[in-house]
Design a protein around this nucleic acid. Structure first.
Lengths: 145, 145
DNA sequence: CTAACTGCAAAAACTTTGCACTTTT
DNA sequence: AAAAGTGCAAAGTTTTTGCAGTTAG
């Protein structure tokens, strides 16, 4: 994980550069996204920000996340029920998700570039973004089962 | 792709064996799932079946798909907006999805078993199901862009 | 005949949208 | 002051659920 403080400032600088306004709610969401070691969902971000800004609305959370997505500053992880966001590694990388408790961790696995090339050739597709997700049981839930 | 007719009969036999009833609506859905070369969504299946059975409801589509999923006879592909279903290769395999027109094709790529093992060791997770999706542009949309 | 299935409508859950008001710049 | 953002409520999606009526076995 990159230095959270640096990541925070980097994202703020990018927003500023594109003339987006640094409202307190927005800054706080960016801070959370930069600081979170895990992969928070929109709902989790909303709940956290509400502690500091009781008037915060879900709409604002989604609008700001849309902004950051568009700027390629967060990676959206689409699950069955909702989406989770990764602001530390905005590039594509694998995730492992527990089907019992929904805990998400990064999968340390490199995406082989030559393999992508081969896939592009056989399929005719131009591949833009791989999304690799492994569903399984986290250590905790594995033990219980 | 396996022989559609054989696949159709196989699924019907499995349903019968588990004492699930072969209603016309259900049989038609199974037929479509077995015959479809593509990866239909619940809505697409619903629309198709309505041609033959005008009273068909979405609820029934979802209930039958849940049944087939539980029997591991279809693979559910969770996309951002909805889910698509693959009844020909119920086991996990990669997909390539066009972000413009949503066309889905199978990715001919083997999932390396030793890699999975390594991931399990480093993460502590017990991996049950890999879901590998490549987002990109299909040959058609690539050309237009 | 009876247990299972269908289909309607309502509900659930996540996300988006419209718009008046507020705030950043 | 002007443009952008917030927040509320309503609407939009996909999927699930409850239940009365229907049907396969």
């Amino acid at each position: 994980m990159t230095d959270p403080e640096a990541r925070f400032n980097e994202m703020l600088a990018l927003l500023k550069k594109r003339a987006f306004r640094l409202t307190p709610q927005r800054v706080e969401l960016v801070r959370l996204i930069a600081v979170s070691a895990g992969h928070p969902s929109a709902a989790q971000l909303y709940t956290k920000i509400q502690e500091k800004f009781p008037t915060m609305s879900q709409a604002t959370v989604y609008k700001t996340l849309a902004l950051l997505k568009e700027m390629n500053q967060v990676l959206e992880i689409n699950l069955r029920d909702d989406s989770h966001y990764d602001g530390n590694r905005p590039g594509a990388h694998p995730h492992i998700i527990c089907t019992k408790c929904n805990q998400i961790v990064d999968g340390e696995l490199e995406i082989d570039h030559s393999l992508l090339k081969k896939l592009e050739e056989t399929s005719g597709y131009q591949i833009v973004r791989p999304q690799i997700t492994f569903y399984g049981l986290c250590p905790n839930c594995k033990q219980k089962a």
